[in-house]
Nucleic acid binder design. Structure first.
Lengths: 106, 106
DNA sequence: ATTATATAGGGTTATTTTGCCACGTGTGCA
DNA sequence: TGCACACGTGGCAAAATAACCCTATATAAT
């Protein structure tokens, strides 16, 4: 791994890390259906409002979502929709593992 | 987020988290070209041998790679190749951000 | 049989992440 | 003007992660 690669892979890992949290992942998938304000997420997610706000800020800093303030509310939307496609692959990984697990029991 | 969703998204996040590390990500991309033993990675990566071994074990536990022992060596290979496709999207996120950054300087 | 090599796993410490609380800011409404 | 709501931020403690060193095991070579 060259020095240049270290920088590149640190940047890539930073983006992926932003997705690597149950709540953030859930929110990103909700955004696939359209924009949402922080307050809507705060109602649905079992966490403090400030925690939700920080999760969204992290996703924004990673370049995955963008925000727009309208009146009192701030709306977030997916900036790079391709992340949603990846979920099929993640599910494939989990299903592949589930099969192995059940095979062990036979 | 329902209780069931909490479990599902915890599982998904666990898979993504396995990819969310520069070294692990680099190794996964190398495996796209074919299997490799731990010792090859240990030579290329600037980290302790045991650290590399643990990274690979984590990827295996996440269901992303699988291993096979042949002689003294253990070879790892990609179990779910679709993860590689995702890298295009991650790069798109980074490029999109890089554009914004440079736009700010103008 | 001894030795060397390839790897996994335990223990420990430093770093990072997470989540809550308390507080400050901006916006609209009464 | 005063109030309430929607957000973001700083600070702090707990939890998770990472990376090192050391040791154990298995296999091959001498």
């Amino acid at each position: 791994m060259t020095e240049k690669e270290k920088l590149i892979y640190a940047a890539k890992a930073r983006v992926i890390k932003a997705l690597a949290h149950p709540t953030r992942l859930w929110m990103v998938e909700r955004l696939a259906d359209g924009e949402r304000c922080v307050c809507e997420f705060a109602d649905d997610v079992d966490a403090d409002f400030s925690t939700v706000s920080k999760h969204l800020a992290l996703l924004r800093q990673a370049g995955i979502v963008e925000d727009e303030k309208r009146g009192k509310q701030v709306f977030y939307r997916l900036k790079v929709p391709c992340v949603i496609k990846f979920m099929n692959c993640v599910e494939a990984v989990i299903e592949s593992q589930a099969k192995e697990q059940s095979a062990l029991l036979k």
